[in-house]
Amino acid sequence: MNQIVDRSRDIGEFVPQPDDDMLVCRCEEVTKGEIRKAVHDGMWTITEIRRYLRTGMGLCQGQTCARLVKGIVARELGISPAQLEPATARSPMRPIEMKVLGKEEVSDTWQ
C-alpha cells in the first residue's frame, strides 16, 4: 500500500479480451474493457480510475465492484491487488439525499 507507482514501467499494449464488454460496476455501467483501457491511459491508482470512469461512485458506493475493479487494475499492472491503495473512504458512507444530509436534527442539544 501507498507504494510509489513507477509510471515509467512498461505494461505493454492494450490487448482486447472477449469479455471486455462485461459490466463490472453496475451502478455506473462501466465495463471490464473500459477499466482495462483506463489503466493503459495512465490511470494506475484506484482513485484515478474512480475519477476517470466513476467506478464505485454510484448507488452501492463500490460495495459490489470495489474488489472486482481492484483485481482488474492489479492484473493489468501485473501486481497483487493488496499493493493497490483502496479508494479513499469518505462520508457519507451510504447514499443519501442532499436534503437529508443538510437537515440536522432540531432537538440538537448537549446532553
Binding site: 462520508s91 451510504r94 443519501i96 436534503k99 437529508v100 444530509l101 440536522e104 436534527e105 440538537d108
Partner: peptide, 11 residues
C-alpha cells in the same frame, strides 16, 4: 459519529 435516521442527520 454522524447518523442518518429518517429524513435527518444527527451528531
Amino acid at each position: 459519529v454522524v447518523v442518518r435516521r429518517g429524513d435527518e442527520v444527527s451528531h
